[in-house]
Design a protein around this nucleic acid. Structure first.
Lengths: 179, 179
DNA sequence: TTATATTTCGAGGGTCCCTCGACTTAACCT
DNA sequence: AGGTTAAGTCGAGGGACCCTCGAAATATAA
């Protein structure tokens, strides 16, 4: 079990990092985060050896919720399950600027911290695609990677341009995926 | 008319910057570019007050070619004009990592260096969309902004993920835009 | 050749990255 | 309560990069 002060600092760092990443993207300066948390840089690096680790910790809770939704959608087997999944993940990946890039990169980078969660996200997407294909609500040549790519591209667009425009692109792409 | 040495350095800087941006994205360190060009940092900043100016100069020739194609497509009035435009601009915006973000940002940032070229790109896109709508080869609710957003999102995906996947997304979105 | 306007140079102050040895302290033991 | 010590914290420091600005160099024209 960690020492009390360590635990306190860890929590503070996470809290501060969350708002920093949300407001300035995942490249927000770590030194500033440490300072904001009332802690020396070394302490931050003690808890999180690199920016990825910090991001990973930050995403843990968020991912829980997402995967829960995914499992629920798989259980429900509603017609709009895939679409709801796409919208949810898009919003998730747009939480911090730069996150979408990390996700597409992490998906096929075995060594990445986020690899596991990327794989799980893709797995859920694939299952939903398979189901939609079985129900003939989607073109048979649509692959899991396609929805993964779509979600991330849309998430990027949210951060770079407008959220509304990103949603429209998702609309068009989803329409194009229907038979 | 510029002094001979100035001209020489200007050209060298552009050449070096081109490969630097192509290989490392538009955030490639300017100090390294200057060094590669055999020039001091101050000289680089003398020619290009900021990174944007350098990018702008680099894009000038490239843009010429693109706009020429756009005008040609508008003159031809072939059925696949819009699609060819989308593919061409996607490739253009994927020339350097980070360029797509600059373009979507510059489109509605009056002060941006690239604003003019963004506007022109959008204008061509809008004209092609209008024509496609008139020919009923596209859904009537598709707007010029939509194709602009699509192109940039796809360009981003090219840099972040795979080019093939980006093309597939474009395929789906274009399919979804048809009536 | 000389004068000068242009251009170049690079040190320097700022931010950020990350490391590592010295210091501090929470927690456990008697 | 006081001592011990492993766990945790600190922050200077070296490296990369940003950008500026006064001093030095030089291309060009008279």
């Amino acid at each position: 079990m960690p020492r009390a002060d360590a635990q306190r600092n860890y929590d503070r760092l996470l809290t501060v990092a969350e708002t920093a990443f949300r407001e300035h993207g995942i490249d927000a300066p770590l030194e500033r985060i440490a300072r904001s948390a009332g802690v020396a840089v070394g302490t931050l690096y003690g808890h999180f050896p690199n920016r990825r680790t910090l991001l990973g910790a930050l995403l843990r809770e968020r991912n829980e919720a997402l995967f829960e939704l995914g499992d629920r959608l798989l259980a429900e087997s509603a017609d709009d399950a895939l679409e709801r999944w796409v919208r949810a993940v898009t919003e998730h990946a747009a939480a911090y600027q730069g996150l979408a890039a990390e996700l597409v990169g992490g998906a096929d980078d075995e060594a990445s911290e986020l690899h596991a969660s990327c794989v799980r996200m893709m797995r859920i997407g694939e299952d939903l695609v398979a189901r939609a294909r079985a129900a003939a609500t989607i073109r048979p040549d649509v692959r899991g990677e396609d929805v993964f790519a779509l979600m991330n591209a849309a998430a990027w667009l949210r951060g770079a341009g407008s959220a509304a425009e990103a949603d429209r692109i998702v609309d068009f792409a989803l329409a194009g995926m229907r038979p």
